[in-house]
């Protein structure tokens, strides 16, 4: 097993000890650069779970990997739970500037996950990854949100 950089150890400790609200990240036992992530759908977004249940929101599983270049390059991260969102494609890949050209080594796993959570509250159909979903969002936002809620109920319960 390669030794893990101090920075990753520190970030992991903090993620586990002081998790951000609605976000958990757990390193894989066999590969400490590989995280199981769970993000709760933000309240007042179509990704919030059924409010009549006790759970506060839809539950989305993601996977995150820190390459050898981290923190000089962004973590790799994608959704494993199906989600109807204009900036997330059918394989769960995420279109988010800080994961691409706006990445900075000053950002952390925590900030990445908070940004993804924020993306759930603020879908951006003008910078789409899933074109059909973005078209739906632009042509009939109300109907698209209805579909997103339906998918949350079906897949993120």
């Amino acid at each position: 097993m390669n030794s893990l950089p101090k920075r990753i150890i520190k970030e992991t400790e903090r993620l586990v000890k002081e998790p951000a609200p609605g976000i958990s990240a757990t390193p894989n036992e066999e590969n400490l650069r590989y995280f199981n992530v769970v993000i709760t759908g933000p309240v007042d977004s179509p990704f919030q779970g059924n409010v009549s249940h006790h759970k506060s929101g839809g539950v989305f599983n993601l996977e995150l990997f820190l390459t050898d270049d981290y923190p000089m390059s962004a973590p790799k991260v994608r959704f494993l739970t199906k989600i109807y969102h204009p900036n997330i494609d059918k394989l769960g890949r995420i279109c988010l500037d800080i994961l691409k050209d706006k990445w900075s080594p000053a950002l952390q796993i925590r900030t990445v996950l908070l940004s993804i959570q924020a993306l759930l509250s603020a879908p951006n159909p003008d910078d789409p990854l899933a074109n059909d979903v973005a078209e739906h969002w632009k042509s009939n936002e109300k109907d698209a949100i209805q579909t997103a809620k339906e998918w949350t109920r079906l897949y993120a319960a």
Partner: peptide, 15 residues
């Protein structure tokens, strides 16, 4: 070198 998890390896192959 760290171990690239299966899914990310396959995503890279797909891309």
């Amino acid at each position: 070198m760290s171990v690239l998890p299966r899914n990310f390896r396959l995503l890279a192959e797909l891309e």
